[in-house]
Amino acid sequence: MTWALDHLGDILARAAQHAWLAGLPLVLGLVIAVPLGWLAARQPRLRAVLLTTTGLLYTIPSLALFILLPPLLGTKILDSINVIIAMTVYTVALLTRTVADGLSSVDGSTRQAAVAMGYGAFARFRAVDLPLAVPVIAAGLRVAAVSNVSIVSVASLIGISQLGYFLTDGYARSYPTEVWVGIVACLLLALVFDLVIQVASRVLTPWTRAVAA
């Protein structure tokens, strides 16, 4: 406890870095996964291709991705952009299916009514399908958030500053307290993400709570 208090500044700085490395890709990944998911939901053939590809992406080990990206992108190995991109890839991999499922979960008669009222494909997506898919997408986003927070900690192995540092450093120095601080900090960060997503989802979906008055 004293160790944690003594190093509070360092812990907070690394936590902020960790939040940035895990959080920004969550946003970027969502922005990319929504159009991909939309395409997948519209086109059965495209769906198979997209979901298989994105599914495969998730199976690439994170360390490999962190190391493979710099030569591919021409970035420096210590550049945190590699982590951002890698985490975005994972987020897209997790979210594309969720978005596609969410969009196609809209009730048939609701969709039919929207078409019959003269909504074009894009307008319908924006005004009907997407808002209705929010609860499903939020659930997927929560999984992706936890997954990102945990994967980002691996980046300490390639020397990028975040909470994972306490795990590797504590292990190297055989100092369990430091490892525990790292674990708890990661956990708290994941909880914060989870909370933010849940609150956002609640705000966006007032109708889900309006049941049989």
């Binding site: 009730d107 008669s109 609701t110 969709r111 039919q112 009514a113 929207a114 078409v115 019959a116 009222m117 003269g118 909504y119 074009g120 009907v128 808002p131 209705l132 979906t205 109708w207």
Partner: peptide, 29 residues
């Protein structure tokens, strides 16, 4: 789109938009 907006369409399970209030459902078209 113009054709459809000039035709009222009612179906078996109403097909209301669950995320919109009754008022906003009715104002759609």
């Amino acid at each position: 789109a113009e054709l459809r907006r000039g035709i009222g369409y009612v179906i078996q399970h109403a097909g209301l938009f669950p995320h919109r209030t009754v008022l906003d459902n009715v104002t759609t078209v």
